[in-house]
């Protein structure tokens, strides 16, 4: 459907202030054509504002938005080849599904036959054909979302923006829709930029994730990079429960309250944090050769596909799918593998 696959998006020194509040503090970011890019962050981090600036619904206080080499910073929303799936979907309640999907094409006064063809294709693609004559309030949340997607995509935008697209769906449906969204994006090859506060959603869907906090992009990279190698404490904590250890640099590694550990990379700081994901801590029968720790199980949390063990010292969380039965009070040997201990920056 997309014809403009070479249009990269560049966010250049974008700053946005509302009154005295600085919502975005100098954001620079490149979004490559055809990728699924996600802005991930807690509420109030400025991710939605950034999305709205890309959509043309908000003007940046300073900075530039460049799409395919053209400066579109001051181009109003109706003139941008960018379409949005709104958080509430914002379907027109007084129009049928068909008319909702046709809305953008009618605005641009495209020939009737072409509108019919494209709307039919859009409805078909989203599996909405049987309900094209219904009104939005007769649809379920998932169906509404697909109408919103179809309504945006029939315009063949350079970029599709998605503002928290799953927030109105229940957890079960959400998991399915995440994968469908990913497949849809691959099939179309359109650039998708999604805003979310849900790390699972970001990890499942994205080619690249930009983690935002307090109006800045803290880290940007592939889901694996961001998840496995968080740059700082915020990213480590925001993307799933990480074990954080206060550490001091010493010969060959770090020393912490619960012992000394060898690291793959020597930290640049004297005192700082190292992190390790609960799923990377190994449980050993006997003392491992390196980075071993004898710990006592304080609590066991059953999570369906795995167990979380909470251990002392250090209030460590270990995720295991071992069939071995542990009891509270058991003593086990843990190994914190050197290459999984991530040194966090400021």
């Amino acid at each position: 459907m997309n014809t403009n696959k070479e249009k990269n998006l560049t966010i250049q020194n974008v700053v946005k202030t509302f009154g005295k509040v600085e919502v975005l503090k100098t954001v620079n970011q490149e979004v490559r054509a055809g990728e699924f890019f996600t802005l991930l962050g807690p509420s109030g981090c400025g991710k939605t504002t950034l999305l709205r600036i890309i959509a043309g619904l908000e003007l940046p206080t300073s900075g530039k938005v460049i799409l395919g080499g053209d400066d579109i910073t001051s181009l109003p929303a109706p003139k941008r080849q960018v379409n949005m799936v709104f958080q509430s979907y914002a379907l027109f309640p007084h129009m049928t599904i068909y008319e909702n999907v046709a809305f953008g094409l009618r605005s641009r006064k495209i020939a009737a036959g072409e509108i019919q063809r494209r709307v039919a294709y859009g409805l078909e693609m989203m599996g909405l054909d049987p309900m094209k004559d219904r009104m939005p309030d007769q649809l379920s949340g998932g169906q509404k979302q697909r109408v919103a997607l179809a309504r945006a995509l029939v315009n063949e935008p350079d970029i599709l923006l998605l503002d928290e697209p799953m927030s109105a769906l229940d957890a079960k449906l959400r998991a399915r829709v995440q994968e469908e969204l990913r497949q849809l994006q691959r099939k179309l090859g359109t650039t998708f930029i999604m805003v979310t506060h849900d790390q699972d959603e970001a990890l499942v869907c994205s080619d690249r994730i930009a983690v935002m906090n307090e109006g800045q992009i803290v880290q940007c990279g592939s889901p694996e990079e961001v998840y496995d190698y968080p740059r700082n404490k915020f990213v480590a904590e925001f993307l799933g429960a990480a074990n954080l250890l206060k550490a001091k640099r010493c010969e060959g590694g770090v020393s912490t309250d619960i012992g000394s550990f060898t690291l793959a990379k020597t930290p640049e700081w004297h005192e700082g944090l190292v992190a390790i994901r609960p799923e990377w801590i190994r449980i050993r029968e006997s003392q491992p050769e390196q980075n071993g720790l004898l710990a006592t199980i304080q609590d066991i949390v059953y999570r369906g596909t795995n167990f979380d063990l909470l251990l002392s010292p250090g209030a460590l969380r270990v995720r295991t799918n071992s069939f071995k039965h542990f009891k509270v009070g058991d003593q086990v040997w843990l190994e914190l593998p050197a290459k999984e201990l991530v040194v966090l920056g400021e």
Partner: peptide
Amino acid sequence: DWSLVEAAQDLYSSRSR
């Protein structure tokens, strides 16, 4: 519901539309 207004703008509507 201002999001409908924004949706209309996002979908290439003129002011009168």
